[in-house]
Structures are given as C-alpha cells and as structure tokens.
Design a protein around this nucleic acid. Structure first.
Lengths: 208, 208
DNA sequence: AATCTTCTACGTGAAAACCCGTATTTTTGA
DNA sequence: TCAAAAATACGGGTTTTCACGTAGAAGATT
C-alpha cells in the first residue's frame, strides 16, 4: 500500500522541507508538488493524490477557496492544511471548507507522518499545539458566517484602500449599498472598524 | 575555509528545506538555527555566524528590526534576507537596515549558495527575480521615511483596531496628538486612509 | 409555489477620520 | 553646544465611517 501525497505551498523551500521529512517513509510517495492554486487545479484534472498537503496562504488565491474547490470537485482527496497560521478563525475556515487535518508548520516529522496516514484512512487530525483552544471554536455554536461573493469583492476593495464612495463607483452601485455591505462585513467578521476588516482579511488570507 | 551560516525562520520546515539545499556544500556549515528573534539574539550573544539567513516575518518581532539590531551590535555578521515577500518597500526596508543580500523563497539551490558565498565576501546580491524593478526603488531619491518609535507604537494600536480616542487614552496623550501621529503615518507611508495603514503595516511586517 | 438568502437602495444622526493650520517642550545628533 | 527632529497640544473645518432602522427585486433552494 502506497499513499500518494501532493504538496501545494508557494515556498519551494517549504516543499523541500516536507519532502525531506517524508522521503524515508516507504509507504508514502510524493506524487506532485505545486506552488500555486492554479497549477494545483490543473494538475488535479489529470491525476488526484490520496492526500493533499495544502498551505493556507498561496499567491494566487486563498487556500480556503482552493480547499472548497477540491472538496466540491474531487471529494475523494483528503486535504490536510499545513500552515503557520494558528488563529482559530483560520482553522475553522479551513476545516469548514473540507480539510480533514490541520497542521502547523512547526510540526515534527512523526506528527506529519501520522497525520498523513490518518488522513488516508479519513481520520480527522488537528495539530496538538492547537487542540486545546480549538474544541469550542469548532463547535457549531461558534460559526463564523461565510462571506458572499459580493462581500468578498467589497472586502478586497476596502483592503485596497477604497472608500465607500469609490467602491460604489467601481461596482456601479449606490453608496448606500456599498455601505450596507461594509456594515455586514463588520458584523460577520466581528470587528468594529475598517482597521479590523483589513487585519482579518489579510491574516485570514481572505484576500490575496 | 568554512562559511558558518545561521538560519532564522519561524518555520522549521523552511529551515529543513534550506538545510537540505546546503548540506552537500563542503565549504558551508550550518552552525545554528533559530525560530524566533529572541532566540537569535540570545544565540548571537555567545556565537556569531559569518552569514545569517533571516526571514522577514518572525512571530515575535519584525525582521527589519532584528536586522537593525544585528547591524548595530554585530556589524561583522552579513545578513541575507530570505523571504517570500517581494514588495519593493519590504526589500528597501531590509536593505536599509543592513542586509547585504535579499533572496526570495522561490530561489534555487545554486542562487542560494552563490548568495551565501558573495555575502561572505561582503558582496551585495539581490534576487534576480526582483532585480529589474528594484534599482529605482533602492535609489536615494525614493526613500521611505523611517518611522519613529512612537509612530510604530501608534501604528500597532491602529492595526489592533483602536480609534484615535482609544489610542490617546492608552498612551496617556491628547487625542490631538494621537491624531497628528496618525496623519504623519499616512504621509510617511503614502497611503490615504486607515485601511492603507493596516495593509502596509501587515504586508511590510512593521507590526507582528 | 413558497421560502430563504442575497443584493439592492434609502433616511438620520453620532462618531471617527481626515485636512489645513500654529506652537511649545523634549530628545537626538552632528 | 546648537540645530534638527520628534513628541506634545490646540482650532476649525470637511469627509467618511458606523449604527439604527425599512424595504423591494433577483436568485437559489426546498
């Protein structure tokens, strides 16, 4: 039995690091590695791995959206998020989008291997480093509402520094409407001002 | 002749990746590796490398400040920034704080080795991937003003979501003064609103 | 067909942010 | 030591953001 593993990380160095950790395992085979979400999607079209190690921050699109895409189109691929981000909202976001495991990049070799084997058998695994704080976060009572397409659009413009007026002009909508979206974002992301929106958007990888 | 190299990166995986790239070079010896700025500073107190590979984003403090600290206290250490950030302002910031080289994490093995050797002989080296766009950026006519200690303090609070009023209370200064600092930041960083401040601060690693 | 969500649009008012100044004290550095 | 830079504080004004509403149209889902 051989577990085929794909790796997607925008840092070739990180890919090398993972490869080094796995190369002595006879039952784990690194099939393909990708550095962008686009390359990954293209590669998956022709061949799917058993387990995919997926970075949360990619250069071309948010890892959460890549995960959602894969879950929708290739549900048999077990996705393990592998990242340095340990914010509860990030973990929540990735798990909700179909990841079966979540590892921090500070993980050691044996944990990485164990996680891959568990993922292969469709067993969920969270990094021990965040297990403690995550249980209540991942409970249904603590759901971060998902953002709509429009809201993500607005959020990107806010991060880019556009005012409500400018957003309205760019999207050809009323300033009132743009403002409503802004206020909805404040509530959904549970922050109180623009600074919070930008910070959340950047740290959660909601925008590129 | 052996070049002693230290590596500081908050991702152990990245450290492994770098180590793998360098382990077959007889003249390069990896002396110490660190995952935080604090650990690096502590280690440097007892032993300094010839060349330090330094990530721009660390968990405990901005890489630019670590670079400034090392340049001030251990000027004989040649610092090579090694990061995935390719924004002109980031490069500028690191070079100004004493780095002699700047590599992107997408770099290949031979470039990494060449850069380390050049750094050892105090030769400057910028990643070819950004060489084109950087020349004019690094010219003296295009200087980003440095932020004062107080301004960095204010900036952190802004990123944290505090209003001018709240900042004034926390720092025990007049709201007017807090506002002046905010406006100074807008001008120095050449953005037009709070969203821009937060974005710049986070992408440049000015705050943690 | 009915329902739910999303996107759209509007009103009002308070708070915050932003832009133009001036000016004193403290700190830094040449 | 003397000049420059930084930190402090204030006035008056416009623009933007934020909070509290209501409500119709389009689309998806059940």
């Amino acid at each position: 039995m051989t577990i085929n593993v794909d790796i997607t990380d925008d840092h070739p160095l990180a890919i090398n690091g993972i490869r080094m950790m796995l190369e002595d395992e006879p039952d784990i085979h690194i099939a393909h590695t990708y550095t962008t979400g686009a390359a990954l999607k293209k590669g998956l079209a022709s061949q799917q791995p058993d387990v995919l190690l997926l970075d949360v921050k990619l250069v071309d699109e948010p890892g959460s959206e890549v995960a959602a895409f894969i879950t929708r189109n290739y549900p048999e691929v077990r996705i393990v998020a592998l990242t340095s981000l340990d914010a509860p909202a990030v973990v929540k976001n990735m798990m909700r989008n179909g990841c079966i495991g979540y590892l921090l990049k500070g993980t050691d070799r044996s944990t990485l291997i164990e996680t891959i084997r568990k993922a292969y058998y469709c067993e969920e695994f969270l990094d021990p480093a965040l297990h403690m704080h995550m249980r209540h976060v991942l409970s249904p009572s603590n759901e971060t509402p998902e953002l709509t397409k429009r809201e993500k659009e607005i959020l990107k413009l806010i991060v880019a520094g556009d005012s409500t007026q400018e957003i309205a002009e760019k999207l050809c909508i009323s300033p009132r409407t743009a403002e409503v979206h802004r206020l909805t974002l404040l509530k959904k992301l549970d922050v109180k001002n623009t600074a919070g929106l930008v910070r959340i958007a950047l740290t959660l990888g909601l925008v590129i």
